[in-house]
Design a protein around this nucleic acid. Structure first.
Lengths: 245, 245
DNA sequence: ATAGCATTATTTATCATACAAATGCAATTG
DNA sequence: CAATTGCATTTGTATGATAAATAATGCTAT
């Protein structure tokens, strides 16, 4: 497959910026299993032909994958896929690239479990540390959820923002990073789980209660409500799985 | 500063593999504050002269930093340092590079807080899911701690392995990744906190109790003991701070 | 004068090519 | 048979040229 070229107004062929496209394509081939862990990627020169770009681009793309722990390169040996343990799955770009393979790789359950540990603590901290502005922003996200109505896409987007803001309001940079990182994962999970009308209603109610706890600086209440949110998320995901596995 | 060269047996000048060295050097200059967030790095050509390497190497090093969210590059603008929010601090290489600046950046407290959320949950899961072999390995690490005696270095190494194995035994890839990631941070924190004789004794006792809980599949006990370990770590760190701030 | 537009200058992005270094593999040699 | 030497292959680095993007500048027209 060669990289697409675009027609400029004057009719000149323009080559789009391609480094990231190549990196993404290679990464997705890894996550899809096309390149199994431990196996060799094609030689750099072969990749040049495959993608129709210079070796410079191929190498810089491979450097990106190396930086994320997906591959290692050595002279004469070639570039080989690292064991999964070494993949930097706490990198949001990596999570984006994994995308539809999240569940197949067993990461959805991992993520829900991890959120179960992190979000309650983050909510507790947010109840103590969040500024009035941050609480107001979270409430705005909640209102966006409530106002989404049947627009599932808008609901998901608002829900994602809600959790990201909550983690940021914990004023802990680790949790905050985790929030940005959960973005693609959340989108994927939410988009695949069931969305009945009463389901959305219940979710909106829970989120609202959490906002209220933040306002009251009720850290214990916030913790419990965050825990309940995760429990509901787990339930939704397993329900969605039983419908269409 | 030019990259050092080595004298080969025959007297030929050999250039060591330098990409990573350059990336590390630039990253450390960022974390030390030499390149403030939002400011420009030198032009690629200037960096070539500074490090005495070709533009190829400079660019591939910058690609690594880009992949970790430390900088962004755009034509005509140059390469600028990203805001700290975007730094990929959940990358163990980044954490290594931060090294001595961990505390100055306020990350030690963040990490302790995050561990407070994660390790109890991980211990709980490990009590349910760990294989006999994994428990044995954890116990071996504990024995190494006990046998370290006054060798603080060995004690720290064993302690690090203990926590890494514990997180791995949770059979959750997120937690596992977090363990590998904590490695450099743990080393730094442990090496800077107080190490009196009775302190070590108490720590060894707590870790031993946790191993026992794992053996008994006592998830609730494991959770509480992990929590106590973190509390002790927090205490040690603040004690070390009050001694030599 | 000023808002909008074309030009320019500067910097990164890509291409192309050549050579250096590392290393698996085979031939060679003691 | 073992050790070493040389060869072949692949990534690593160097170099120089061209393309694309865009801030800054200057120009034009209103």
């Amino acid at each position: 497959m060669t990289v697409s070229t675009m027609e400029a107004p004057a009719g000149k062929l323009i080559r789009p910026r391609v480094r990231l496209s190549v990196a993404q394509s290679l990464a997705q081939d890894i996550f899809s299993g096309k390149f199994a862990e431990g196996s060799n990627l094609p030689r750099e020169n072969d990749l040049c032909e495959e993608y129709g770009v210079s070796r410079t681009v191929i190498r810089e793309a491979l450097k990106i994958l190396q930086a994320k722990g997906l591959v290692v390169s050595r002279p004469r040996i070639g570039t080989i896929v690292c064991p999964q343990d070494e993949w930097n799955i706490l990198d949001n770009q990596v999570l984006e690239w994994i995308g539809p393979n999240l569940d197949r790789m067993g990461l959805v359950d991992c993520i829900l479990e991890a959120r179960g540990a992190i979000e309650p603590m983050a909510a507790e901290l947010a109840a103590r540390r969040a500024t009035m502005q941050e609480i107001a922003d979270i409430e705005a996200a909640w209102q966006a959820m409530a106002k989404a109505g049947n627009d599932v896409e808008a609901f998901i987007a608002a829900d994602t923002v809600f959790h990201e803001l909550l983690l940021k309001a914990s004023h802990n940079r680790i949790f905050q990073q985790f929030g940005a990182l959960m973005d693609p994962a959340l989108n994927f999970m939410l988009s695949t789980s069931a969305h009945s009308a009463e389901n959305l209603e219940e979710s909106i109610g829970q989120h609202g209660a959490l906002v209220e706890a933040l306002r009251l600086r009720d850290s214990e209440g916030a913790r419990k409500l965050a825990l309940a949110l995760i429990a509901k998320a787990k339930h939704d995901v397993s329900a969605a799985r039983s419908v269409k596995p």
